[in-house]
Amino acid sequence: MSLLIIGGTGTLGRQVVLQALTKGYQVRCLVRNFRKASFLKEWGVELVYGDLARPETIAPCLKGITAIIDASTSRANEQNSLKKVDWEGKLYLIEAAKAANIKRFIFFSAQNVEQFENIPLMKVKNGIEIKLKQSEIPYTIFRLTGFYQGLIEQYAIPVLENLPIWVTNENTYISYMDTQDIAKFCLRSLQIQETINQTFFLSGSRGWVSSEIINLCEQLAGQEAKVQKIPLFLLKFVSRFFGFFEWGQNISDRLAFAEILNTENNFSKSTFDLYKLFKIDSSEIIQLDDYFLEYFIRLLKRLRDINFEDVQKQKNLII
């Protein structure tokens, strides 16, 4: 089976690429900048030029392809890109995929998209879900929560650098996942007939609130966090007049999506059934506390190495 992966240089996309290569798939990646994607070529990926903003470049990329995995997305504040790439470009991609008789189209969406059409990114993702279902292309849609990788910038680095962490006053539970595990579900779906024309709500085995993640980072870093709270009603008030993502990208992204990605704080029956269908044991899934522990261990080792190099330089200067 040959795969065309879109967004292969991204946080999730590169994990999909890596695991697909490991499993022996022929992998082609649609890229706009060959230099930025050079590491993919070193892994053994075929790189082809393609740009969703330039529809004429899409069809040639699909020659000989069995399945498309779309792991790309614009940032929520990139309004021009949302319209040109995530909407118009992906509509053309769907049409080109239908013409090329693609056997499976995997699309990554977000939890609860139909409930937040006031947010442009959510409206676009929901719209693409609808168009894909109407296309008659065999599809699989994964609705995702947040990534572990994004929590490093959100929580770990501010704690380490004594910067403020912005949270709402709500206890919002989010079942984050490691992108490695999401990629595992994605690729396994290609082998399971029951996943065709289905939408799956993919989440981790437990939900976390901000305070729990902050406490975890404090314990691992050995220092206290500077927490700044913003009432959820104020967030909603501002979004109603100015739209999400218009008043400080990082803070508004995180706080707005905290509400969108709210999930149950337990390993629910639906999650259990999902793992059973994909033949994945919950013990195989990377846990958030283990992920953070590994991050801090690597970071502390790097700091020790840097400190050792500085000491050696000073000794050489003295000599």
Rank of each mutant, 00 (worst) to 15 (best):
L4E: 13
I5F: 13
I6D: 09
G8T: 05
L12T: 14
V17E: 08
L18H: 14
A20D: 07
A20H: 04
T22I: 07
T22W: 05
Y25A: 02
C29H: 02
R35Y: 12
R35P: 02
S38Y: 12
L40D: 11
E42T: 12
W43L: 15
W43E: 10
W43G: 03
V45Y: 02
E46I: 10
L47Y: 10
G50S: 09
A53E: 06
P55N: 12
P55T: 04
T57G: 07
P60D: 05
L62S: 05
I65K: 01
A71Y: 12
S72T: 04
S72A: 15
T73M: 13
E78A: 14
K83E: 12
V85N: 12
W87C: 06
A97D: 05
A99N: 04
A100I: 06
K103M: 14
F107P: 09
V113Y: 14
Q115C: 12
Q115G: 09
F116L: 03
L121T: 13
L121F: 14
G127D: 03
I130P: 00
K131H: 08
K133D: 04
S135N: 10
S135P: 08
S135T: 09
I137C: 04
Y139V: 10
Y139G: 07
F142T: 03
F142A: 07
G146A: 09
G146Q: 13
E153L: 04
E153T: 07
Y155S: 08
A156T: 12
V159W: 01
E161L: 11
L163A: 15
L163P: 01
P164N: 06
P164A: 10
W166F: 15
W166K: 15
T168I: 11
N169Q: 05
N171F: 04
S175V: 00
T179K: 02
I182D: 08
L187S: 11
L190W: 01
L190M: 08
Q191N: 10
Q193L: 02
T195W: 00
I196D: 04
T199L: 14
L202N: 03
G204M: 03
G207P: 01
V209P: 01
V209K: 09
S211I: 10
S211F: 02
I213K: 03
L216Q: 11
C217A: 11
G222A: 09
A225G: 10
A225F: 07
L234P: 03
L235T: 02
G248P: 05
D253S: 07
L255V: 00
A256F: 11
F257T: 04
I260P: 01
I260G: 02
L261F: 13
L261S: 00
N262T: 05
N262P: 01
T263C: 11
N266I: 04
F267C: 15
S268V: 06
F272V: 12
F272P: 00
D273G: 02
L274H: 03
K279T: 07
I280S: 12
D281E: 15
I285K: 07
Q287N: 09
L288N: 10
L288S: 08
Y291G: 11
F292A: 03
F292V: 03
L293Q: 12
E294Y: 06
F296C: 11
I297Y: 05
I297G: 00
R298V: 01
L303A: 13
D305H: 02
D305P: 00
N307K: 14
F308S: 09
E309W: 03
E309F: 12
D310W: 09
D310I: 12
D310P: 01
D310E: 14
Q312W: 06
Q314T: 10
Q314L: 15
L317W: 05
L317F: 08
L317K: 15
I318M: 14
I318F: 12
